[in-house]
Amino acid sequence: MTLGTRHILSRATFGAVALLGLAACEPEADPATRADAPFNPEYLGIETALLDGDLVSFRVKMKGARDNEDVAKYGECAAAQYALIRGYGFARHVRTNVDMRGGMWEGDAVFVISDALPEGLRTIDAEVTVAACEENRIPTI
């Protein structure tokens, strides 16, 4: 190992140690969890728009969500029921945008619906998802 290589290694090691030191200075995470947050959802509607072939947009509105996840789940429930209504068994999540204005949460979720399990990591089985939505009292279309 040459002197130049040792110098580079020591800089890399120093950088890693410095980052670990900075991470240790971060404030502790809030001990309250999502499950502890108040949750009194008011589901205010779903708008569906066919974008292209099997690509569908679901716009949802609600009040009382804890965070973006509650809004995204509402969109997923809409997509799952829509897939079943159209005779399909699956959907693949493309994206979800969530915004909150004046206490109103709005979500715009896009899914690809299909009759066979689509490729991708974020796929849903429509029947299983609708059953879970019903169990959790999340409305569908």
Score class of each variant (00 low, 15 high):
Pro31Asn: 10
Ala32Met: 14
Arg34Ala: 14
Arg34Val: 14
Arg34Asp: 08
Ala37Tyr: 09
Ala37Glu: 12
Pro38Gly: 03
Pro38Lys: 08
Phe39Cys: 07
Phe39Val: 13
Pro41Met: 06
Glu42Tyr: 02
Tyr43Cys: 01
Leu44Phe: 10
Leu44Trp: 11
Gly45Asn: 04
Glu47His: 10
Glu47Ile: 12
Thr48Trp: 01
Ala49Pro: 04
Ala49Ile: 08
Asp52Cys: 02
Gly53Gln: 05
Asp54Cys: 02
Leu55Pro: 00
Val56Met: 01
Val56Lys: 00
Ser57Ile: 03
Phe58Thr: 08
Arg59Ile: 13
Arg59Met: 07
Lys61Val: 03
Lys63His: 03
Lys63Tyr: 01
Ala65Arg: 04
Arg66Ser: 07
Arg66Pro: 10
Asp67Glu: 04
Asn68Met: 07
Asn68Thr: 10
Glu69Arg: 00
Glu69Gly: 01
Glu69Tyr: 00
Glu69Gln: 02
Asp70Pro: 04
Asp70Ile: 05
Val71Ser: 09
Ala72Asp: 08
Ala72Arg: 06
Lys73Met: 11
Lys73Ser: 12
Lys73Val: 10
Tyr74Leu: 05
Tyr74Ser: 06
Gly75Leu: 07
Glu76Thr: 14
Glu76Arg: 15
Cys77Pro: 06
Cys77Gln: 05
Ala78Val: 13
Ala78Glu: 10
Ala80Asp: 03
Ala80Ile: 03
Gln81Arg: 11
Ala83His: 07
Leu84Tyr: 11
Arg86Leu: 06
Gly87Asn: 10
Tyr88Ile: 05
Gly89Ile: 01
Gly89Phe: 00
Gly89His: 03
Gly89Val: 01
Phe90Lys: 04
Phe90Leu: 07
Ala91Val: 07
Ala91Thr: 06
Arg92Phe: 13
Arg92Met: 14
His93Asp: 15
Val94Asp: 13
Val94Arg: 12
Arg95Phe: 15
Arg95Met: 15
Arg95His: 15
Thr96Lys: 05
Thr96Ser: 15
Asn97Thr: 15
Asn97Phe: 13
Val98Thr: 15
Asp99Gln: 14
Asp99His: 13
Met100Asp: 01
Arg101Phe: 11
Gly102Asn: 13
Gly102Val: 09
